[in-house]
Every structure is written in C-alpha cells, then in structure tokens.
Design a protein around this nucleic acid. Structure first.
Lengths: 191, 191, 191, 191
DNA sequence: TATGAATGAGGCTTCATTCAT
DNA sequence: CATGAATGAAGCCTCATTCAT
C-alpha cells in the first residue's frame, strides 16, 4: 500500500469534520449547549473524545462551527428565493421557503432557538446570526416599501417574527401544527 | 431576647422566598437553566447557597416555583381581559395585553423561551406552561370561530406564534423593535 | 404565677435530656452515627435543633451521652445476675440475662454494633464499652476457672462472642431467630 | 507514538480496578460507608477523584463491587471445603476455614459488619450477602440434621453466630483473642 | 429557655480538556 | 491519526453548628 497522498488526508479530514458537525448539531439541538457533552457528541459521531480536539479546539469552537455549518444549510434553502422580491408571488415563495425550512431543517432551527436564548452562547455566534437574519429582513422590508407600506421595516419584522414564532411552536408540538393551513393563513395575511 | 413569634418567622420566610424567586427568575432567564448555578442565584439573592435549600428543595423545584411565580405575574397582566373575547375591540385589548407582557415581564418571557427549548428543562414545567398557553389559545380560537373564520384554531395559533416571535426578537434586540408600531401592524392584520 | 424554683428548672432539664437521649438512641441505632442528623433527632425528640445544643454541645457529645445512658440500662438488666457466678444454674441465669438483653434492649444493642464498627465513633466511647464488657468476661472467666476449664478466659470469650453473634444476627432478622430454641442449645453447650 | 492496543487498555483498566477495590475495601472497612469519602478512597488508591467514576458509576456501585470482590476472596478461602459436610472432620475443616477468614480477610470481615448494621447500606448489598451466608448456614444445618440434632437449623445458626461473634471481637481487639485456643474450644463444643 | 433562619465546609458527581501511547 | 485514561474545577446538595430574636 502506498502512503496516502496529502489529498486523501484532506479528504478524510473533511468528511470527519462533516461527520462531527452533523452529530454535534443533533446533540446540541436536542440537549442544549450546556447539557450536551463532548463525550456524547463524540460517541454520536462515532469517534473518540480525543479526536474531537484534533478537529475543534474546544466546545465553543465546535458550536461556532456547527452554527456556521447550519447557516450555510439555511442559506442554501433560501438561495433560490432570496434574489428578487418584487411581486406578491415572490413573497409567497419566500414565505413558503421559510415554512419549508421549519419543516426540513428542524434540527438547525431548533439549534437556532436553543442558541438564541443562551446569552453566553449567543455571544459566540451573534455576528453570524445577525448577518443572516438582517439580510433577510432587509429584503422583505424592501418589498413592503415597494408596495407603499407605511412601516416597511416593522412589517418585515412582523413577518420574520411570525415565521420564528411558527417555527418555535411547531418544534415544540409538530403534531398540533398543521403547517399547510397555517401557510394559507399567512398568505392571506400578507398578500 | 424573647424568641421570635410564629408570625415573625412567617414574615421572614415570605420575604426571603420572594427575594429568591426574583433573583432566580433573573438568573435563569439570563443564563438558562443549566448554566445558571445555585451559587450565582444565591449571590444574586444576597444569601448563602445553603439557605436556598431551606426554601426550595432542589434546583428543579426552584425552577418550578419561579415559573409559577412568573405565570401569576402574567395572569395579573391579563386579568381584566381574560373574561370574554367577543368584539374586535376586546381582541385588540388582548393583543395589547400580550405586547405589554413582552414589554413589562421581559424576564419571565425570556425564561419562557429559555425553558421551552431545553427538552429536559421543559419537562420539569411542561404542565404549568401548557395550562397557561392552552387556555389562551382556546379563548382566541373561540373568537375566530365566532367571526366565522374557516380555521379558527390555526388562526389563533398564528396570533399566538406571532406574539411569541415578536417577544423573542424583542428580547434579542429591544432597541430595534418599536413595539408601538408593531402593535398597530398586528391590529391591522387581525382586525 | 410564681417564678419557677430552681428545682423545677432542674426537673425540666432532666426530663428534656432523657427525652433527647431516647430519641437519639433510636435514630442513631436506626441510621448509624454519620447518617443520623441532628435535625432528625431533634424532630424525633419534639424539640428544635437549637435547643439540642443547650443540652449537648455537639453531635459527638450527644453520642457519648447516649452510650452512657444505654450502658446504664444494660447494667441494670444484668445487675441481679452479675453478683455471683458459681453454679451452672447461675451461669444459665447469666446466659438467659444476655439473651433477654438482646430481646428487650434491641435499640441499644443495635447501637452497640453500629458504634463498634465505626472506628472514629468507637474511639469516642471505647473506654466505657471496654469497662462494661471486660467486667462481664472476667466474671464468666472466673466461673470457668472454678470449673477447672483449661482456658477459662478464652472460654468466657467464646460465650461472650456467641451472645454477641446471636444478638447481631437476631437484630438483622428477628423473625428467623427462635431465641427460645437457641437458648436451649446454648445451655446445652455450656452446661 | 502508536496508539495503545485494546489489550493495553484492558490491562490498565483491570489493574486500576483492582487497585481501587483494594483501597475501597480498606477505607470502607475502616470508616464505614458514610464516613468513607470517595476523595479518601481515591487518595488511598493513588488516583484522582474523577477517575473513580471512570471505573465505578457511583459510591453505591463501588460498594457493591467491593463486596463482590470480597466475597470472591472469601469463597476462595472456603473453596476446598464447600463441597461436602458429612464427617466431624469436615466440620472441623469448615470451622477452621471460618476462623482463617477472620484471620486473613480481616478487611472484608470488618466491612461485613460495618455494612450489616447500617440499614441503608445493607440494603445496597443485601442480596449478595444473603446468598453467601444462606448457602453456608444451609450446608451446616444439613450436617447437624445428618447427625440427628433436634434443631439442626438453629444449631447451624448458633455456629454461624459464634463465628460472627468471634470475628467481631477479634477485629475490635486482635491482641486479646488467641484464635488457636478459641478454635480448639469451638472444636470441642461442636465435635 | 426556645426557635428556626442562616452559614459554610465538605461530600458526591459531571465534564471539558490534556496526554501518553 | 486515534484512543481513552487521567485530571481538576465546578456544580448540586446536606448538615453540624451558630445566632438573632
């Protein structure tokens, strides 16, 4: 067997890292930052505690990486929509996108809330989050301004908050929230 | 000289208990259940760690008591409204009530979220919360049914979620949320 | 009401002290020295923790007093017998006395073992105990010497140990030990 | 350089575990369960407090393991005898075995008593002890039944109690108990 | 004399992190 | 690169003891 090339090592590292990030996302979301233990995350990722520290220098760094990783996922989900937001139809698509994130990225969404309300944890990832949220709100505010709404920014905030609230409650009791109907109601409100 | 009377002891206990509950509410809301330490809560309350256990038998019990204490506060805020919810005016009063809670009971509101997303912690106070939230949603659903809305329950959930979302975001960045304008927008939506 | 006389005070103190000693004996025997809490003993005695310290300056002092108190009880039980030990009949009476102590003073007997095997606790009351045990062994050894036994001291120790062992096991499972039959067997052995 | 093999890890764990069990046996026997601190046991074993929990999940589990460990030791001491108990010679061997346990496994013997009289502690290891004691008593009762004794079970209990009592007193003051002479006396009694 | 609030040391346990191999 | 043994700080909780009233 010839020794592995540098590229192969790089490949291994990348896939390991992904493995760890996925495991960490799940555990953080399930248990919260402080309750989640490195040990459990390592087990979930199928590696040893020691190896974790080869990839992430501390629990905090791991969380930061998980959040970055998750934001990328969210942004991918929104990417097709984000571009333009001019017509009501596009707003509907945006809203539907938001609700789909709730449906599909529930792990990350949960982490989002878990992290948001853990002051010391939030500090760690504040910047990344605000960047993500800010740009979305801005886009939507643009739309409402275009439509002549007197308080476009606040209206956008209301929409954003509504989606957050739906997501939050849906995560708590998915069986009670019929997202299809709720989507219709939201359409009806913001059309 | 002479020993304290029973009333004196009761007085001491009552005021200490209040003192601890307030401190705990603040620290739990700030730090989350797991990060908040009994030690810190005791310091915040100006007492020794040991004394905490003279009033609450465990951290869990303390949390339960804090939540109960907080719910009482909330219910006081809503007291005048709870009764009937028939006219749009009454719904407006209800919404204003919700927003006032966000404004005034921000500690409890934060605790509400902090607890909601920590599965193991939520388990501790599930019952108390569900009772509070359930009855409110029901009242609002009744209103929408009365008004002939096709999905009254879901509509009520949307309103509830919106208030939750507003509360959440307001807590994260109060300086960015103009609650007066937002109140108007919500009125406009649900009138 | 005329103020209480000094004698009355003395009377109260004595009866309180007795009350505490009885409660402590029970709790110590039930829970062991380290597990037993002053709080529990006080409750059992029907007084406050603080008052305990008016009568006994520390937990250790309390234990010492309990043991002294208990030894007095045991010695009373043996008093009628101890005097002379010359005939087999008298030995029988002695043995029966020992077994009756097991039957009747089980609290103290239990404390005896509990204390005996708690090195630091034993240190506290070593002297008292050894004094009590030593004098009994001596008496019995005298008897066996009189009877011409080659190792009277050891024989006495065997009898003493047997009674201790019976007591120990009886306390662990009284329902399994038929003391009447066992008494007969012992008689048979040492007659 | 290269990572440890699984066998190396196993070796480490086995020897550490033994080290801890020995230390724990000594400290538990010396101090009793409640007084013995994990801290002290760890120090005695020459390891850190934290490491203890890598091997035993709690103080209770540690005690259980220590008792099991001790019972194995005892059973080794009795191994040659256990089989049959038919002739007086075999009973003598049994008795000698019991006395040798007193002599050689004094730590465990002391633990036996320490645990026996701490109700809550006894509860932890009840099963293990009862199994050990029960089978011994049974064997001896069988012997006395064979010999036509009217109360074989009680006679066996008397022998068991005698050994317990000897053990107890020997542990309290080994210098005063000449086990060789006592052995002879016991032989003489039960022959 | 009598109470129980208050303290603080110490015990059990968890867990992020380090390190020898 | 990979493992898990090992450490130590920190957290929850208990309890003997003190003290104001």
């Amino acid at each position: 067997m010839s020794p592995r090339t540098e590229e192969q090592f790089e490949e291994i590292r990348k896939s390991r890292k992904y493995q760890i990030l996925e495991a960490a996302l799940e555990v953080f979301a399930q248990e919260g930052y402080h309750k989640a233990s490195i040990s459990k995350i390592a087990t979930q990722a199928g590696i040893s505690k020691g190896l974790m520290y080869n990839y992430f220098s501390s629990k905090e760094e791991l969380l930061k990486a998980v959040v970055e990783h998750g934001i990328e996922g969210i942004q991918d989900s929104f990417n097709d929509i984000d571009d333009d937001l001019d017509t009501p139809e596009e707003l509907m698509i945006f809203i539907r996108g938001g609700i789909n994130v709730i449906r599909q990225e529930s792990h990350f969404y949960k982490l989002y809330f878990v992290v948001l309300f853990q002051a010391d944890v939030y500090e760690i990832v504040k910047e990344k989050y605000q960047e993500m949220v800010g740009s979305m709100i801005e886009d939507v505010a643009c739309y409402f301004k275009l439509k002549g709404h007197p308080y476009p920014l606040e209206k956008a905030m209301v929409l954003g908050s509504l989606l957050d609230g739906i997501g939050m409650n849906y995560l708590m009791a998915p069986e009670m929230y019929n997202l299809d109907i709720i989507e219709k109601i939201i359409f009806d409100i913001f059309k």
